[in-house]
Amino acid sequence: MLNQEQLHELTERARQMRGHIIRMLTAAKSGHPGGSLSSVELLAYLYFHKMNIDPSNPKMPDRDRFVLSKGHAAPVLYAALAERGFFDKSLLGSLRKFKSIIQGHPDMKKTPGVDISSGSLGQGLSVGNGMALAAKLDKKNYRVYVLMGDGELEEGQVWEAAMTSVHYKLDNLTAFVDYNHLQIDGSIEEVKSLYDVPGRFRAFGWHVIEIDGHSFEALDKAVAEAEATKGRPTMVIMNTCKGKGCSFMENQAGWHGMAPKPEEAAAALKELGFDA
């Protein structure tokens, strides 16, 4: 259970992260706001409450791992890492720039705190499985968290990996689907219906939890339940709003991969309670 103070802290971190996302995308003039904003609460919760990590020792062997399988949401990861102190916040302005340590998509060789490179959708659950298998083999109790997009679930490899997690009883892995109902060309329902997302994972043998992905209490409860679930992996299906926190972006497929213009950014930042 999160107390009032923790809730307050997480809410403020999330607000700061949204500010970072808007500012870094505006400076970069390209990138993906929608799916970054819909995952803010999850990353705030993991990076500021849950994960055993050390910004001064990003490769700490026993750390918990985070796999951003939907690599295009790199801004939310960079926002979390900078806010948590893995690198200086001033570097956020260099997103997508030549020689920057924060590339257009996550690059573990360049960015401290990035546990795996990503960008080609559909691979992260497999990678997370590999990490979780290694933990079991080494009898270590670090946990692995994987975040996928809902559109990403259209990739066949996700389902190969979903079988692997269950086959190897990877109860040290918790996966999340950012169920924001939008991808690039339109809604999931229009592009390629996923029919029954929780039912699919249940049929594959996963423990499935459906929550409001913007509620810290719900995230906290789900992650605790996942940890208590033995012998199988847990899939947390987070009902979210793409573009959350920036009213003109909310639920708009068009804001998947477009940076705000300076005047739009100013409006967004004002809405988030920032002066400039």
Binding site: V127, A134, Q157, E160, A161
Partner: peptide, 27 residues
């Protein structure tokens, strides 16, 4: 215990091997 049967899923196998390597294994 050091062998992972991945089934007929080569894409999954390669990325899983990648994950194992990030944790110090030599897959």
């Amino acid at each position: 215990e050091r062998f992972f049967q991945m089934g007929i899923a080569e894409a999954d196998m390669m990325a899983t091997a990648g994950g194992l390597a990030t944790a110090g294994k030599i897959p």
